[in-house]
Nucleic acid binder design. Structure first.
Lengths: 247, 247
DNA sequence: CGTTTCATTGAATAACTTCAAAGCTAGTGG
DNA sequence: CCACTAGCTTTGAAGTTATTCAATGAAACG
C-alpha cells in the first residue's frame, strides 16, 4: 500500500523541505546520514521515559505516538506521528527523555545517531535551524491539542483531531480524496483527546450520522472536507506549512 | 518586593546557566545584547496570534501567559512564565505567531531583536543549543500540562499546577519557605487547567481544608510541601533542571 | 474454529458546568 | 477618611456532559 521506493533520507529531506527551503549542500549532507532501519510491531515502546538516547528516530512507515502515564495508570497521548516526522529530536539537547514513544500501527523506524546529526549541524547552521524549527512545529501542534482538549466539547474536539490527521497525511502524500488508511483504535483516539473510549465511540457515531465521516476499522473517508473542517473549527495555521523563510 | 538590582541580561544568563553550562565568551556576548525594557499593565496582550515578530521577549518581573482562544471564545492558557523565561523564542524560526502572550500581573518585559540573537548564535553555536534547549523545556512543560489536564482529576490537577509554579519560582529565587507572591486569579488558573472558575474555587477550598495550601488573593503558603507534592503526583523530571550536558 | 482484540450498547453514577446572586477586598476619587 | 466602584471570590441549585461498569457483537488472526 505504501510501498515507498524512496530512501529514509529522501523522505526526511522532503519533509523538512516542505516547510523550509534547504540548500544543495545541506541536502547532500542529509542524504549521506547513516540510518539504521528497524521494523516494529504495533503497540511496542520505541523509547521510554527516563531513557538517555544516543540517537533520534525518524518515522518511515506507519504511525507512532508520544505518551505519558499518570501514577494511576491513565495514559495521555501527546502527539501522533506520521511518516517523515522526527518525534524525539529533543533528545539532542535534553539528556533524559520526559516521555515515551510507542508504535500505534506496525511501522518502520529509522535511527540516526546524535553524533552524526551534531556533526552536520555544526557544519551547516541552516540545518540546525531546520531541525530546531521541526521541534517548534511539534510544540505548536501540542498547543493546539491542549486548546482542543481543554476548551472544545467532544464532538468538535474529535472533528478537529481528524482534520489535523487528514491534513498532515495529505502533506506527505498518504491521503488524497479517497479512503485513508488510519490504523488507530478508538481507544487511542480517546487517550489523545482525554476522554473515555465509550464516549469516543458515541461521538464518532454522531459524526457518522451527520455525514461528516465514514469509518470502519482502519479506514476513514471524509465525504465533505469543508463540513468537517467547520465542525472541528479547524484552521491549519498552527501547522506552519508553506511558510517561506528567506531571511 | 522583587526589587532586583540585576540587569535583564544577567537575569537571562542566570536562567540559561541554571540548566546548562555556558562559556565565558557566550556569557559576554549575551551580556552585551541590547534589551529594550517595557512596563506592562495586567491583562494586556504583549504579542498576538498572527503577528510576525522581529524580536523576542524576556520576562523581567511579574507573570505572563501564553494563550489561545476557540471560535466560541473559550480561552486556554498554555503556559505561565516567570521572570527569566523567554516565551516566544519560537518566533526566531516560525514566521507567524500561532499563539498570543499576555501579562497576568503587571510586569516588566525586555525585548531583544531577532537579528541580534541570530548574530551571536551564528558566532557561538553553543548559544544556539542553549536557546533551542530552552524552547524544548517549554515543550516538555506543555506535555506535562496536557497529561495533567487530560488525565488527572481536578483536585490532583490543581495540586500539580501549584507544585510546578512553586518549584519554578524557587528556581529563580522568588520563593523560599515563606508566603509566595502569586498574582494569578482563580479564573486564570481555571483557564490553564481547562475547568470552570467555579469548580476551581471549590477545589481550592478543598485543598485549603486539607491543609495543603493557605491562600488569599495574591498570596500562597505551602505548609507541607511533601504533602502537596504527593497530592499532585508531582515529579519535577519534566522541568529538566540540573542536567549537566558536558558533551 | 477458537481466540483475541476492537466496537458497540445500556444503565447507573460521578464530575463538572452553568446560571445567578451575594459577599469581599483593594483601589479610586471626592 | 470614607463611600464608591470594579474585579475577584464564594455560594446554592439545577442541569449537562462524560465516566464507569458490564455485557454483547463483530471483525481479524492464526
Amino acid at each position: 500500500m505504501n510501498a515507498s521506493p524512496i530512501s529514509p533520507n529522501t523522505l526526511m529531506i522532503r519533509k523538512l523541505e516542505s516547510s523550509y527551503s534547504l540548500g544543495d549542500e545541506e541536502k547532500q549532507a542529509l542524504q549521506q546520514l547513516p540510518v539504521q532501519i528497524k521494523s516494529i510491531k504495533p503497540g511496542a515502546d520505541i523509547v521510554r521515559i527516563g531513557d538517555r538516547p544516543t540517537r533520534c528516530c525518524l518515522i518511515l512507515e506507519g504511525f507512532t505516538c508520544v505518551y505519558k502515564v499518570t501514577s494511576e495508570g491513565n495514559r495521555q497521548i501527546l502527539a501522533l506521528h506520521v511518516p517523515g516526522d522526527m518525534p524525539d529530536l529533543q533528545s539532542l539537547h535534553l539528556m533524559v527523555l520526559d516521555m515515551s514513544i510507542a508504535s500505534v500501527s506496525s511501522c518502520k523506524v529509522g535511527f540516526i545517531q546524535h553524533d552524526d546529526i551534531r556533526r552536520i549541524c555544526e557544519r551547516y547552521p541552516r540545518l540546525t535551524a531546520t531541525l530546531w524549527r521541526e521541534t517548534l512545529i511539534h510544540a505548536s501542534i501540542l498547543r493546539e491539542w491542549t486548546l482542543n482538549n481543554g476548551q472544545r466539547e467532544a464532538y468538535t474536539r474529535i472533528a478537529h483531531l481528524l482534520c489535523e490527521l487528514v491534513f498532515r497525511l495529505k502533506a506527505v502524500g498518504l491521503a488524497d480524496g479517497g479512503p485513508i488508511h488510519l490504523p488507530i483504535t478508538q481507544s487511542e483516539l480517546a487517550d489523545a483527546t482525554g476522554m473515555s473510549s465509550v464516549h469516543m465511540n458515541r461521538v464518532l457515531q454522531a459524526l457518522r450520522a451527520n455525514g461528516l465521516i465514514k469509518s470502519k476499522r482502519a479506514e476513514l473517508v471524509v465525504p465533505d472536507w469543508e463540513k468537517l473542517q467547520e465542525a472541528g473549527e479547524f484552521d491549519p495555521l498552527y501547522l506552519h506549512m508553506e511558510e517561506s523563510d528567506a531571511s
